[in-house]
Structures are given as C-alpha cells and as structure tokens.
Design a binder for these strands. Structure first.
Lengths: 203, 203
DNA sequence: TAGTATGCTTAACAGCGTTAAGTGAGAGGA
DNA sequence: TCCTCTCACTTAACGCTGTTAAGCATACTA
C-alpha cells in the first residue's frame, strides 16, 4: 500500500502551503502585524494546525528567511564567479546585497533588523550552515580576493568584511526602517558608500 | 489659593514618575518585553492612569527617546565646538554616536531600529525639532566643515552626511541586534569604519 | 451645604501566541 | 466485515497584551 507515502506527500504539501501563506502575509504586512490566526485563516485550517508543522511563530519566520536568503547567497555566489576583477566583483556583491534588502524589505527586517528578542537567545541564524552566514562567507571571499590581488592594502580580512557588511547594512536598514526621512537618491547613496569604502581601502 | 498650582506640580511629578519607571524597565528589559501593566505596577497606580498622561505606549516611548537623544545631541554639539581640526571633530562625532548607541542599546533600538511599524505612519521622530534630527544636523555641520576646509573633495553634503550616518548606524545596529555574531574587537571595527570612510572622502 | 470638576480605578473588549484535550476519518489486522 | 488503533486536525481554554468606557470618590467652587 503506497498510502503511507501519499500521506507523507500531503503533509509536505500542507507544510508548503503554510509557508507560502505566511510568506505572503509577512512580506505584505510585516511579521508582527500578522497573527497565527490570520495565517491559519488563509490556508483554511485551524490555528493550532500550524503548530503541528512549525514549533512556533519564530520558526515559521526562520524557515521563510532561509528560503529567501538561499536566493541571496546564490545570487552573490554567481556574481563572485562571473568577473575577474576582484574590486568590481566586491562592488557588485555589495550592491546586490543592498538591492536584495530593498526589494525584500520585510524579509530583510525579519532576519537582520527585528531579529530575535531577548528571551531564549535564538542563535539559529548564526549557525554556519545558515544561508545568511553563507552570504557573509561570500563577501569575505570577495574581500580576500581584493587583498590577494594587492588591490587593497594588507589588513584584517575579518574586520574589513564586517565593515563592508556594516556599510551595506547601515544603508539598507536605514532606508527600510525610516522611509519618510528626506534621503538623497537611493542609488547615489549606495554608490557613494561602496565607492568611498573601496577608495579608503585601496593599497 | 495656590492649590491649583500645587495640583499642577503633583501632576507633573506623576508624569515624571511614569517616565522614570518606564525608562528603567524599557532600558533593562526592552520595549516589547514590558507591558503597560508592569509600568503601572512599578509606580503603584492602575494601568489606565498612564493613559491620562500619555496617549499610548508608543508616546511613552517617544518621550523617553527624546530625553535620551537630547543628551546625544548635546554631547555631539560639545564635540563639534571643542576642537578646531574639522576632520578630528567629525571623527569624534561619529565615535560619540556609535558609543552612545552601544551604551544605550535599548534606547537606540527604540529610536533607530525597531521604530514605528506600518500602521499610522508615526513621523514624530522626523519632525525638525526632534532631538534625533538635531543630532543629524550636527553631523551635517561636521561634514560641511570638512568640505569648507578643503579636507574633503567637493561633494553632495547631504549624501556624505547620510553615508557617514549609515556607516555609524550599520555598525551600531549590527552589534546591538546580533550580539552573538563572532565580531572582531568593537573598537577596531568602529575605527576601521570611520577611518576608511574619511580616507575615501579625502580631497 | 449642594453641585461640579478632577483624578483615579474597576471592568471589560478584542486581540495575541500557545497548549491540553477531544474528535472523527481511515488504515490494518482478525 | 468488524474492531481497534493511529493520526491529522479542531475546539476550548489559559494567560497575556494594549486600550477604552464607565463609575466612584475626593477636593474645590459657588
């Protein structure tokens, strides 16, 4: 009897339905403005059913973030491979990072801005296998390439990577969380940051 | 009869008590982990009393942030005045900004990270008189001084200011909201960011 | 002294994330 | 075919949240 496999397939399908419903709502309205009950309503199941598939609301969020950040990591990896000028590669990588955040503001918020609150100290996002960490590793590789090619002066790779990340994150998060501030043109701001940092690092 | 004035004084005193209690709790445990009922308990009044003095929880928060950012603005202004080398002044201003955020992480979170959510579009923090904006103005003045002194190449003052802000904010917010990430030494990261940006802007 | 304004409280509403207990359809064995 | 058991799912509830409407005393005014 293949009924067992069929049921397993159906379970997996429902899990995906929950994920899809939650993603759509979270992205459209923001994590804290969407209740488990609303997600349940969307998939036409009772709220408690969700808890049979995800431990809690945060886990649901985490699963969605992983999906999305897998996309980011993939895109950044592609960029890293395509060119041969390491500086240009790093530049494009940074731009991809910021663009990604601006195009998926709620995903970005969830992973890098709101993040876990005090209780429980949820460190899932920092596990090495996590997609966010993979993207970080990519950036690190980009920085390392610039140093190896003697385009950047010799410095602490980790520190430079973290600084580049902070630069990108600073712009991304400010633009996302203070949309009403009188910002200059977004592209100008992004390019200015990237160019200034790169210029400041040059050998 | 000075009773009217006395009552006014007492009202003002209670308002301050609420503010003090809320600040202590918010700073210690974070805004979203503190309920209005807990604030009320601390001042030994009923929860609803708070609503006679503050419109809602966000207003309470806003009042506290204003207090704290007044301190930041004051400190940054003092720094701007004390030296004559504009670059050194800017450097110290940036450092003061980041240090302030790291020393008051919950205040910082409240004003620059968590911030208002979608509903209502709360733009109070962006009013020109607000203390946050005053601090921004200070930074802007610092940048302008560097350009006027021909230390920086001629560029869009607004864009450069926003970039410097984003640089400082990027580091501050990442350090605050991802405390478990394997960061390099904080001071190293902060100095690297500031020095790299300044070097990149040099005439 | 009667009436009113003021400061605060009690009780409640509608929502939240989450859990314990219960239900009912379908599979598997006799 | 009938019984039992498994398991996906639901109902009901707990203890919280921010917030509001209504009520109650005290203190001031006329």
């Amino acid at each position: 009897m293949g009924s067992k496999q069929r049921r397993e397939r159906e379970k997996e399908a429902l899990r995906q339905d929950i994920l899809d419903a939650a993603r759509e709502l979270f992205v459209k309205e923001g994590y804290e403005n969407v209740s488990m009950r609303r997600v349940a309503e969307k998939i036409e199941y009772s709220p408690t059913t969700i808890y049979l598939y995800f431990e809690d609301k945060a886990s649901l969020l985490y699963a969605i973030c992983e999906e999305t950040f897998a996309k980011l990591a993939k895109r950044m990896e592609a960029i890293a491979r395509e060119g041969d000028d390491p500086i240009e590669g790093l530049r494009r990588g940074c731009r991809a990072y910021v663009d990604f955040g601006l195009k998926n503001p709620n995903h970005y918020k969830l992973t890098f801005i709101n993040h876990p609150q005090h209780p429980g100290d949820d460190k899932r996002h920092l596990r090495e296998e996590s997609m966010g960490m993979k993207a970080y590793g990519n950036m690190r590789a980009g920085v390392e390439a610039c140093i190896k090619a003697k385009k950047f002066r010799e410095t602490d790779v980790e520190a430079v990577t973290q600084m580049m990340w902070a630069g990108g994150h600073g712009i991304t998060s400010l633009l996302i969380s203070m949309p009403d501030f009188p910002w200059v043109k977004k592209t100008e701001l992004i390019d200015l940051m990237i160019d200034t940092l790169i210029k400041g690092l040059r050998a």
